[in-house]
Design a protein around this nucleic acid. Structure first.
Length: 416
DNA sequence: TCTGGGGTCCTAGGACCC
DNA sequence: TCTGGGGTCCTAGGACCC
């Protein structure tokens, strides 16, 4: 069988590069990429973390996910710009459309990462390395930002290759290069080795990817269960997963929010849950799907996190029905403490062909369906907040919270 | 005025059934 | 008076990714 050729394309400091590019194209003379700068949220509304950093900012040991407060301690002159997700979605889309010219098999792994299966395209476009340079140059010239491209025989190695040296680089990671290029890397640079697994591996003397590769696979499996076996395979460059196109079924839809202040009042918490449920249900209906599982999550002011879920008899997409369950779930677990963060999620999605009537209240459900449909179409035409629930008037709360932009494409559909 | 949001997958323990 | 074990479903929580 023919060896597969897989590309992994990764935008360098994505949010920051896109922000920099946009600003340059709109008359700014300052390139954010050349100074210590970050894209970050607003601490006033308690969203103050780093979402992306420039390479000069990285030199101050500023890390993605850390607080702006701590970043400013490290670098007082740090330039902070707010995120603009709509712009990022657009940038992601144009890059995707360029990649689609080179293969029909392109998988969007996240907003700034794609896998391309180049195997069938080789006869048409030729040498993978040359084509990768061609893609990289086109993105730079036509779109204004740089990418890293990894080339290998499977997705895992392509992804590892694209992480090797940044920015604006192309690397291969073929089987004969694994030892040289990958095994000497520290173990936490391996995909799927995170902060909890790192100490467990260090405990048994595994410090590099090579150490793990040479360890015993069965031992790893008994030590860390299926995850141990997975990362042992990864360390050895083994991965058979396929580059998948867009039609992957999504498993769940959720939205959550950190409130500007801690909420201790049940009525207020209910309103926030309603605004989240509104968004989740709109997305659900937009997908033409029904949900069987409903869950809520709470993070209190001590950052303690807990959740509660229930399964319902007949799958639904009704905002009213889902919100009723959400309220009940909340009352069942809330410990009357101040709440920092609330989330609503639905899962066990199915298509409408599986819809079963529930005997009770069929008339009421039908009414709900008509209302949802009308509200959705008004919002689609006149904007999200053109029609809102009366309860939000003068509440000081946003009537709809969350969302993932216009196009809902699948991301992170599985491990790889 | 320090700590986001959106996902997927796995596991442990309890309930329940035969 | 002894106290099985396999299977499935459900739930909560945790690990990982970007």
């Amino acid at each position: 069988m023919k060896k597969r050729i897989i590309f992994h394309i990764d935008v360098n400091s994505a949010y920051l590069s896109w922000e920099a590019t946009w600003r340059l194209q709109h008359g700014s003379s300052l390139d954010l990429r050349n100074i210590p700068s970050v894209v970050g949220g607003d601490p006033k509304s308690r969203h103050g973390i780093i979402l992306a950093k420039s390479i000069p900012a990285k030199k101050y040991e500023i890390k993605t996910g850390e607080t702006l407060y701590s970043a400013r301690q490290k670098c007082p002159d740090l330039l902070i710009v707010p995120p603009n997700y709509e712009l990022y979605m657009k940038c992601s889309n144009v890059m995707y459309s360029i990649l689609k010219e080179y293969s029909h098999l392109v998988q969007r792994y996240s907003i700034d990462e794609c896998f391309v299966d180049y195997t069938q395209s080789e006869d048409l476009f030729g040498d993978p390395l040359k084509v990768a340079y061609n893609i990289s140059n086109r993105i730079k010239k036509e779109l204004g930002f740089t990418v890293n491209i990894g080339i290998a025989n499977n997705k895992l190695l392509a992804k590892m290759a694209s992480e090797l040296e940044k920015p604006d680089k192309i690397h291969t990671l073929f089987p004969n290069e694994i030892e040289d290029k990958m095994w000497k890397l520290p173990i936490d640079e391996l995909f799927m080795v995170g902060r909890r697994t790192l100490p467990k591996l260090k405990n048994i003397g595994i410090n590099t990817i090579g150490d793990l590769a040479k360890a015993d696979g069965f031992h790893m499996k008994s030590y860390l269960k299926s995850h141990g076996f997975l990362i042992w395979n990864y360390a050895n460059g083994l991965d058979e997963t396929l580059v998948r196109e867009e039609d992957i079924v999504q498993k769940g839809i959720g939205n959550s929010t950190t409130m500007h202040y801690d909420v201790s009042d049940r009525r207020e918490a209910n309103l926030v849950l309603l605004s989240l449920a509104e968004m989740v249900c709109m997305r659900l209906r937009n997908k033409n799907a029904l949900a069987k599982l409903i869950s809520i999550s709470i993070k209190n002011s001590d950052f303690l996190h807990y959740s509660h879920q229930c399964k319902i008899q007949s799958p639904t997409d009704s905002t009213n029905v889902i919100y009723k369950h959400v309220k009940k779930l909340f009352d069942e677990v809330w410990k009357l403490e101040p709440i920092r963060h609330l989330g609503v999620r639905v899962g066990e999605l199915c298509g409408k062909e599986f819809y079963q009537t529930s005997f009770f209240d069929e008339d009421l459900l039908d009414q709900y369906r008509k209302i949802d449909k009308t509200v959705d179409s008004i919002r689609k035409r006149y904007g999200r907040e053109s029609i809102i629930r009366g309860a939000f008037l003068n509440s000081g709360l946003k009537p709809i919270v969350g969302g993932v932009g216009e196009e809902e494409y699948q991301m992170m559909s599985s491990l790889l």
